[in-house]
Design a protein around this nucleic acid. Structure first.
Lengths: 153, 153
DNA sequence: TTCAATCTTGACTTTTTCGTCAGGATTCAT
DNA sequence: ATGAATCCTGACGAAAAAGTCAAGATTGAA
């Protein structure tokens, strides 16, 4: 239950773009240098983000990348979903191959499934409340109790 | 941001043990058959759980595994910590190698760090409230709103 | 003692994920 | 047109995770 490298670096690339003034774009080499990630890897991450609809790209001499929406309309949950998928995907119980056909024979397996659903909800409630803009402006303030209290709202 | 296979299967093994009457043990082949995991893999998972102090083992002809504590004293958080480590470990910012020395030069990087801390808290609050015993007895009831409301407690 | 059932360990193989690469396509300035 | 700067794509190699294996150690029963 860890962040993948793709999630960590991809989110950093997004944040670099979010720090640009509206209309300004960044090229791969610029992001690469700012984040200390190789050009090739930045290119791959941006490809994923573009295919996920989070960034737009422009080719040519003055090309580069921009966010597809304003930073306050992109949540961290959006980014994670594009970069790494959800904690608990729908095929979960298919992995199971015990002495029954599926998880219905096993109370244990299915109670685990219910738990993950709950964990997923808790995670989503934090991630879906936080936009790129929040991250840039709030910084440390984000970890305050206020935000935690809102989880149950 | 996914559960590792080790976490999923390891937790299932724990739940099998939790379903035994106190004092009863299960052998590797028994768990293997019940969960549809190979003997070897079950052995590896139980080794990890034993080293983490969650299960006890007995060798010899009537050997097997038992939980180290009653099921209502082992939380899912305990299990995940042993099986897969925490979402956000302390070396997190060391990965960073941008054009400064560490994350202090970059507001973006550090605000991400604050966010993960918050996500970790939210996840822990769900996982630390749920014991193996809860999972066995409650099943679906676990996903009720009651549990969610308690997150902010 | 001898044997069968069981756990223990370290090393190995396979699979998945991550990062890299080379070649191509597009745009714009000259 | 030509060339420089940029993004685009599919395929390759490296690293990490997952799973397997073989040989050994312990226990209890016959």
């Amino acid at each position: 239950m860890k962040l993948s490298s793709q999630e960590e670096y991809g989110l950093r690339c997004l944040l670099q773009l979010a720090r640009q003034a509206p209309g300004e774009s960044l090229s791969i080499p610029e992001i690469s240098q700012a984040e200390g990630i190789s050009h090739h890897n930045v290119a791959k991450l941006l490809r994923i983000l573009r295919q996920g609809g989070l960034v737009d790209s422009a080719r040519g001499q003055h090309g580069g990348y921009t966010l597809a929406k304003p930073p306050n309309q992109i949540t961290v949950a959006d980014a994670i979903n594009v970069l790494g998928g959800r904690l608990f995907d729908d095929g979960f119980c298919d992995h199971f191959s015990g002495d029954g056909d599926n998880c219905t024979h096993s109370l244990a397996a299915c109670s685990v499934r219910a738990l993950w659903g709950q964990v997923q909800q808790a995670v989503d409630q934090v991630l879906a409340k936080t936009t790129l803009d929040d991250l840039l402006r709030q910084g440390h303030a984000l970890a305050s109790e206020d935000a935690l209290l809102e989880i149950s709202a």
